[in-house]
């Protein structure tokens, strides 16, 4: 294991930034989100939950895909994809890392989404273990170990040091790049931190959520539950939960007219929006209850049914913190998941 003193972290960032881009939690106008690093920016890797998850590293909220130019009757399509510069995604928590696996299953499934894939291939992911999980966290319910996330490099942070352990070839390459800044040591500190954190995680109120009920065979029973009406009554139909969610991946494809042809872009969309399924001749989900149900059914039943039981929720708890009316997936699980959750 390697380590670097906390007060030298800026040197580490600068060193990485010499050859690669660095995407890291940065505080801007009071809020911490992943941004491209630059000298003088206020890095905040201690922040447990960035407002937006790091998914926009691979799946940006808005992304131009192609451009159309018309000359007379002739149409020309310009591919806007470019070579992606190598990037380091730094400080990813265990839940968010797991979320990338969830996204991979969608975007890397045949046919591969090359926009996602090219960013994914160019990125080295440095994860950061949690040491101060909060009450809204429930990654343990999904079998995630917040004390030892995977990734190309895993790091742990305490009051004095950042501990560093490469897990993959990409991780080794990155380690070599910053070798001069790292020193040996840290095994005992990391072991102690893992143990201490595990104790806290066990005590978190949602750590033992029971998900047994959410199986493909219960699809129709869950879908038909009369409880959806009550659970969704306060739902505003905004997209906060979907946009802060690390696994939500629905998108829209739209055209924008510029002075120089038409740009086709894709952008995040939300199944909570009334126009999400709107067609010229009708809408398959006309009520907010249906839209609300779709989101949770997708995360807890549909997606696992398509992906060998992998849930499309990682327990990051962003929706728990951010829903304006405090509706969230935990409440749904508790309501529908049977008495094990009482």
């Amino acid at each position: 294991m390697l380590k670097i003193a906390k007060n030298k972290l800026n040197d580490l960032y600068a060193k990485i930034n010499e050859t690669m881009g660095l995407f890291i939690p940065i505080k801007k106008a009071g809020e911490v989100n992943y941004h491209v690093w630059g000298e003088g920016k206020e890095v905040s890797i201690e922040t447990l939950k960035t407002v937006k998850s790091p998914k926009n590293m691979f799946f940006p909220q808005t992304e131009n895909m192609m451009k159309f130019k018309t000359e007379g009757k002739n149409l020309e399509i310009i591919d806007l994809r470019d070579e992606k510069r190598p990037f380091v995604l730094f400080g990813v928590r265990a839940c968010d890392y797991k979320a990338i696996e969830v996204l991979d299953k969608v975007f890397l499934a045949d046919p591969v989404d090359s926009f996602y894939q090219s960013r994914r291939a160019a990125t080295t992911i440095v994860t950061l273990a949690c040491s101060r999980p909060e009450e809204g966290c429930f990654c343990k319910a999904f079998g995630i170990d917040a004390t030892a996330p995977q990734g190309d490099v895993t790091t742990w942070l305490d009051e004095e040091y950042l501990y560093w352990q490469a897990n993959t070839e990409k991780g080794e390459t990155l380690t070599k790049l910053v070798q001069e800044l790292l020193e040996e040591g840290g095994e005992t500190e990391v072991a102690a931190q893992k143990e201490a954190t595990a104790v806290i995680i066990d005590k978190l109120p949602f750590s033992n959520l029971n998900l047994d009920k959410f199986k493909p065979e219960n699809l129709n029973e869950l879908f038909d539950s009369p409880k959806w009406e009550e659970m969704s009554e306060a739902c505003l139909g905004c997209g906060t939960c979907t946009f802060v969610c690390p696994t939500c991946q629905c998108f829209d494809i739209r055209d924008f007219k510029t002075n120089e042809g038409v740009v086709r872009y894709r952008c995040w969309d939300s199944c909570m929006y009334s126009d999400f399924t709107l067609m010229a001749h009708g809408n398959s989900r006309t009520t907010q209850m249906q839209r609300f149900r779709q989101r949770f059914m997708h995360k807890l039943v549909y997606y696992p049914s398509q992906n060998d039981g992998l849930y499309s929720c990682v327990g990051c708890g962003r929706c728990v913190n951010k829903c304006p009316q405090h509706l969230n997936i935990v409440k749904v699980v508790k309501e529908l998941g049977g008495k094990e959750n009482d």
Binding site: V51, C238, G239
Partner: peptide, 16 residues
Amino acid sequence: KEQLSKCIRCNACRNV
């Protein structure tokens, strides 16, 4: 500019 650059177009402000 700094404040609005944070906007994620979630429409929560509008819907509430």
